[in-house]
Design a binder for these strands. Structure first.
Length: 265
DNA sequence: CGAATTTGACCGGCGC
DNA sequence: GCGCCGGTCAAATTCG
C-alpha cells in the first residue's frame, strides 16, 4: 500500500515565501516567526494525516482477517433462518435447485456498514453500482424500514442489496449484498464514495467510508487498494481541510503575503 | 412520456 | 392447518 501520496502531495504551505531580499521590509523576524508557525502546523497536519492513513490500513487488515475467520456469520439478518440455512446447506442433496440457489445467494451475502446522518431518512448507500429499488418493508426486529434493491446496471445481474438502519446505532446503515455481479464495475471512480447528505455540509464531516466489509462478493469494491481510493481519500481530506477556518485563514494569509511581496507585473 | 420509486398485496417458508 | 414474517410483485404515483 502506498503512502507516497502523503509525502508527495503534502499540503505544504511553502508558497515560496521564504526569507529573502527586501531589507526595507521591517518585520522580517515577525514574518519568519509566522512562517515557522505555519510550517509547524503544516508538519502536524501531515503527521495527523499519516496516522489516519496508518490506522485506516490497520483497521482494514483486521476486518479482512475477521471476515475470513467467520464464514457462517454472513447473510440473513435472522439468526434463526441463518442457522437453518447453514444446516440445510450441509445436508442438501440438490433436490430443489432453485431453493438451493437462493440459499447459495444467502450464504454469499456480505455486509457493509456506512455511517450517515441519522436524521437523513434515505436508505441510499452509493457504491458505484446502479440499483433499482423494488421494495421496502418494516421488519420485526428493527423499527427502521428495510429497503430492497436490485442491480439495474445489467438486466441479468442477480445481485440484490438490502439496506436498513442499524437498530443500535441510528447513524449506521447496514447494506447486505447477495450474489455476484456478472458485469464490470460501471464507474470505478465512484468506488467507496458515500452519499453525503446536503445538510451535513456545514457540520463536522461525519461520513466514514465503509466501516467494515465481509468477503468480496462485490468484485468491483476490491479496488479499495487502487490509486483511485487514495484519490477519494485525498478529496475527502481536502474537503475537511477547506472547512477548517484556521487552515483557510493560514492559506489566505500566505497567499496575500506572497502577493504583497511579489506583486503581479 | 419514460424511468424510477412507493406501497399495499401476495407468496412461500417456518414454528407452533 | 394456521399465523407470523421476510421477501417479492406490480399497480399507482412521482420525478426528470
Amino acid at each position: 500500500m502506498g503512502s507516497d501520496w502523503i509525502h508527495q502531495s503534502s499540503p505544504s504551505l511553502d508558497l515560496g515565501v521564504g526569507p529573502r531580499r527586501s531589507p526595507d521590509q521591517a518585520p522580517v523576524g515577525v514574518l519568519e516567526a509566522m512562517l515557522n508557525q505555519i510550517s509547524e502546523e503544516n508538519r502536524r497536519l501531515t503527521e495527523m494525516v499519516s496516522d489516519m492513513y496508518t490506522n485506516h490500513s490497520a483497521l482494514r487488515r483486521r476486518l479482512s482477517y475477521l471476515a475470513s475467520v467467520s464464514p457462517c456469520e454472513k447473510g440473513s439478518a435472522s439468526p434463526k433462518r441463518k442457522r437453518v440455512d447453514c444446516e440445510k446447506h450441509a445436508a442438501s442433496d440438490g433436490e430443489h435447485a432453485c431453493k438451493r440457489s437462493r440459499e447459495d445467494a444467502m450464504t454469499k451475502a456480505s455486509k457493509v456498514y456506512v455511517r450517515t446522518d441519522p436524521s437523513d431518512p434515505s436508505l441510499v448507500v452509493t457504491d458505484g453500482y446502479q440499483w433499482r429499488k423494488y421494495g421496502q418493508k418494516v421488519t420485526r426486529r428493527n423499527p427502521s424500514p428495510r429497503a430492497y434493491f436490485r442491480c439495474s446496471f445489467a438486466p441479468s445481474c442477480p445481485v440484490k442489496k438490502k439496506v436498513q438502519r442499524s437498530a443500535e446505532d441510528k447513524s449506521l446503515l447496514v447494506a447486505t449484498y447477495e450474489g455476484v455481479h456478472n458485469h464490470k464495475h460501471p464507474s470505478p471512480d465512484e468506488v467507496y464514495t458515500v452519499k453525503c447528505p446536503s445538510h451535513i455540509n456545514s457540520s463536522a464531516p461525519s461520513i466514514d467510508p465503509v466501516v467494515t466489509r465481509q468477503p468480496d462478493v462485490d468484485r468491483g469494491l476490491g479496488e479499495i487498494e487502487s490509486p483511485k481510493f487514495d484519490r477519494a481519500l485525498v478529496e475527502q481530506m481536502v474537503a475537511t481541510l477547506t472547512k477548517d477556518p484556521n487552515f483557510t485563514a493560514a492559506v489566505a494569509a500566505a497567499i496575500s503575503e506572497r502577493i504583497l511581496r511579489d506583486p503581479p507585473a
